Computed example of a mutant assay.
Amino acid sequence: MATVFETVYNWEPYLKFGTRQFIKKKTEIYSQGSIGDGFYYLHKGLVRIVTSTAKGKERILNIVVPGQLLGVQSMDNRAHFTTAITVKDSVLYYFPCDPFKDLIKEHPALRNVFTQTVIHKMKILLDGINLNSLSSEQQIAVLLLNICDDFKNYEVPLSQQDLANCTGLTRITVYKILKDWKDHKIIQVQNRSFVINRPDLLRALVKESVNNT
Results as ranks from 00 to 15, higher is better:
residue 141 A to V: 01
residue 198 R to A: 08
residue 80 H to Y: 15
residue 80 H to I: 05
residue 141 A to L: 01
residue 157 P to R: 11
residue 94 Y to F: 14
residue 116 Q to H: 14
residue 41 Y to G: 00
residue 173 T to V: 12
residue 66 P to R: 02
residue 138 Q to K: 00
residue 133 S to I: 01
residue 179 K to L: 13
residue 109 A to K: 10
residue 156 V to P: 04
residue 206 V to Q: 02
residue 119 I to H: 15
residue 49 I to A: 04
residue 179 K to H: 11
residue 185 K to S: 13
residue 56 G to H: 08
residue 168 G to Q: 07
residue 46 L to S: 07
residue 79 A to Q: 12
residue 125 L to H: 04
residue 46 L to T: 01
residue 153 N to W: 05
residue 170 T to I: 06
residue 205 L to A: 03
residue 82 T to P: 01
residue 127 D to F: 01
residue 57 K to M: 13
residue 9 Y to M: 04
residue 161 Q to I: 10
residue 28 E to V: 14
residue 101 K to I: 10
residue 138 Q to R: 02
residue 118 V to M: 13
residue 57 K to F: 11
residue 116 Q to W: 09
residue 137 E to M: 02
residue 2 A to P: 09
residue 72 V to W: 06
residue 27 T to D: 07
residue 211 N to S: 10
residue 164 A to M: 05
residue 25 K to Q: 15
residue 179 K to S: 15
residue 167 T to F: 00
residue 160 Q to G: 09
residue 111 R to D: 12
residue 94 Y to Q: 04
residue 191 N to V: 08
residue 186 I to K: 02
residue 80 H to E: 06
residue 176 K to A: 06
residue 55 K to L: 10
residue 133 S to W: 00
residue 39 F to K: 02
residue 101 K to E: 12
residue 161 Q to Y: 14
residue 152 K to A: 14
residue 150 D to G: 14
residue 7 T to N: 13
residue 149 D to F: 10
residue 7 T to R: 11
residue 31 S to R: 08
residue 202 L to I: 07
residue 52 S to F: 07
residue 26 K to E: 13
residue 149 D to Q: 12
residue 76 D to I: 12
residue 140 I to A: 00
residue 98 D to T: 12
residue 27 T to R: 10
residue 128 G to M: 00
residue 191 N to R: 13
residue 201 L to F: 06
residue 190 Q to C: 11
residue 47 V to H: 03
residue 178 L to H: 05
residue 155 E to T: 11
residue 142 V to N: 00
residue 70 L to Q: 05
residue 164 A to P: 01
residue 137 E to P: 01
residue 181 W to M: 07
residue 200 D to F: 08
residue 19 T to I: 10
residue 156 V to E: 07
residue 112 N to C: 14
residue 31 S to C: 06
residue 54 A to Y: 07
residue 128 G to L: 00
residue 3 T to G: 09
residue 11 W to H: 04
residue 88 K to T: 11
residue 143 L to E: 00
residue 130 N to H: 05
residue 139 Q to R: 03
residue 174 V to D: 02
residue 185 K to M: 12
residue 26 K to R: 15
residue 100 F to V: 09
residue 29 I to F: 05
residue 44 K to D: 07
residue 61 L to V: 05
residue 101 K to W: 14
residue 117 T to D: 05
residue 197 N to F: 11
residue 108 P to G: 03
residue 74 S to H: 03
residue 55 K to T: 11
residue 107 H to S: 07
residue 213 T to W: 09
residue 121 K to H: 15
residue 121 K to D: 12
residue 182 K to S: 15
residue 72 V to K: 02
residue 39 F to A: 03
residue 204 A to H: 10
residue 137 E to T: 02
residue 182 K to V: 09
residue 154 Y to L: 12
residue 58 E to T: 13
residue 163 L to T: 03
residue 91 V to A: 04
residue 29 I to W: 01
residue 76 D to Q: 14
residue 65 V to I: 11
residue 125 L to D: 02
residue 49 I to Q: 04
residue 14 Y to M: 06
residue 201 L to V: 10
residue 146 N to Q: 13
residue 67 G to S: 06
residue 131 L to S: 00
residue 186 I to H: 01
